[in-house]
Write a protein that binds this DNA or RNA. Sequence first.
DNA 1: GATGATCTGTACCGATCGGTACAAAGAGCA
DNA 2: TGCTCTTTGTACCGATCGGTACAGATCATC
Lengths: 184, 184
Amino acid sequence: MTRKPGAREDALPAIAEVFREYGYEGASLALIGARCGLGKGSLYHAFPGGKAEMAQAVLDAIGGWFEERIYAPLRDDPDPRAAIRLMLSETDAYFRSGRRVCLVGAFALTEGRDGFADRIAGYFRDWREALAQALIRAGRPAAEAESLSEDAVLTIQGGLVLARALDDPAVFGRMLGRLEQRLV
Amino acid sequence: MTRKPGAREDALPAIAEVFREYGYEGASLALIGARCGLGKGSLYHAFPGGKAEMAQAVLDAIGGWFEERIYAPLRDDPDPRAAIRLMLSETDAYFRSGRRVCLVGAFALTEGRDGFADRIAGYFRDWREALAQALIRAGRPAAEAESLSEDAVLTIQGGLVLARALDDPAVFGRMLGRLEQRLV
DNA sequence: GATGATCTGTACCGATCGGTACAAAGAGCA
DNA sequence: TGCTCTTTGTACCGATCGGTACAGATCATC
């Protein structure tokens, strides 16, 4: 009888997009409801914890997506170089070649004291560790892999900030190109 | 008779800090007033345009600081390598070695449609251009200078995001170290 | 001290915030 | 068709939002 889990998953992408565009504070429930075509009743039925639960669910969904599509191959793919190239192409696709902003990064800059800090830190920590592992498996010394992976994760975030700030998505593409040279 | 300009300048650092911590939407006038010890009356006397004017004034102040301390030396210092090292040390100091967040970057991720977009874009464009000029004067080919300067500006922003997300300021220091290797 | 302009604290405005209450609507089962 | 439980829209809550009005405090000047 319970369609609840389905409704939750259906609404998540729209909610994520609102958070992405307006930030946590700027994303009002009225806006969220309008964007995913749900009244407050439905919204609070799917997310009894309100706005905070919506944000946590969105962060979890994003974390799950990256874990499955990027981190897991980075750790497990028998060809680590292929996994790294996959990471770059999936990253390019996910962020729409720089036209989309990283919600986790945006939350990191403004929020943090709302119980999101753990998820935010985990997202970046997992990314860095998975990439470091792939680099080591590709034959890099451990110290170099640590440094390179931190640099890569941070560079992607910076690329998103700058592409958005200059309103020039091409920044993101050029950054990915340089990253590929450094990584493979 | 008019102490207005003085009061404005005095309040700006506190206002900037509130915007830095809470973002534009999250920074309420009550919070701003409390933080700089000014009532709404004084606040609106100094900034008749309200919150938006406060934000613009803060962005202008930040832009002016960087112009004077970083961009101008980058363009004019007879020793471009020294100017680049100065940029790195001033950047480290300004962002408190990664403990402070870049307000311009934070605004770039969430806002933009409030008339701040020009100032935000200008801040990064000026930085990139000034650094490219220094690199060219230091003997780099133009194409390489363009690429390196874009990479540097974006890397600094990424370092701030990651340091904040992981709650680990050391990320910022390591990033500056790598940047110095690439630039000089 | 008196005067006139500047500055500031307080009260208040309508709008909107996140969140709750609840009754009507919808869906499965008999 | 009745019955039950889930789902939804709407009205509403107190709190707070950004912003305004304005009276009283403060100050320079004479």
